[in-house]
């Protein structure tokens, strides 16, 4: 098994953090993992992204051309990466910010109003990233919700209130019923 995830959105939407959380969850489950950020000019204004690879075997390149999962938190990143997805891949997109109809042949697409859920249910719009990650955990079933919640504690260390908030966001995304 090798899962290759690109998480993309505006700079400030927490795409690096969301990736780090998935990588930490993979560590919690004793899987091999790499995390690689976009760094530099593209972080200012345009889209930022991070690539997470989770595998049972040694991982080669930490960067992938054709990922198996895309978590797109805004429309520009959906446009940027959707053409690179491989057959049978999964796209989770933030339907609060993507207004177009999203359909790609041979790719499973799941929309979740992550920004609205983060704003109304969690009370913090910045948690939209982990709402989307929660939906990903459910759809893909490679990482457990429990290890992702444990990862929150590791990545956020002593920030008790933020840990609870982010865990709640993961749960909301996980339990979202898109039908």
């Amino acid at each position: 098994m090798q899962e290759e995830i690109i998480i993309a959105g505006f700079g400030g939407q927490g795409v690096l953090f969301a990736g780090m959380l998935l990588a930490q969850a993979a560590v919690e489950e004793d899987k091999k993992t790499t995390w690689f950020p976009s760094y530099g000019a593209e972080m200012r204004g345009g889209t930022a992204n991070s690539t997470v690879i989770i595998s049972d075997d040694e991982i080669g390149s930490p960067v992938v051309v054709h990922p198996s999962t895309l978590i797109a938190l805004n429309e520009p990143s959906l446009k940027k990466f959707s053409s690179r997805m491989k057959k049978g891949s999964l796209i989770i997109f933030n339907s609060s910010l993507v207004k177009e109809k999203v359909e790609f042949p041979g790719i499973k697409t799941v929309g979740i109003p992550a920004t609205e859920i983060a704003d109304r249910q969690i009370g913090n719009v910045k948690t939209a990233n982990l709402v989307a990650v929660g939906a990903y955990l459910k759809q893909r079933g490679i990482l457990k919700l429990g290890s992702s919640k444990a990862a929150c504690e590791k990545v956020l260390k002593n920030k008790e209130s933020l840990i609870k908030l982010n865990q709640k966001a993961l749960e909301s995304g996980y339990n979202f019923d898109g039908k």
């Binding site: 780090m20 993992t33 995390w35 690689f36 950020p37």
Partner: peptide, 9 residues
Amino acid sequence: GVVGQMMEP
């Protein structure tokens, strides 16, 4: 830059 910027356990 790749090895420097990437995260691994």
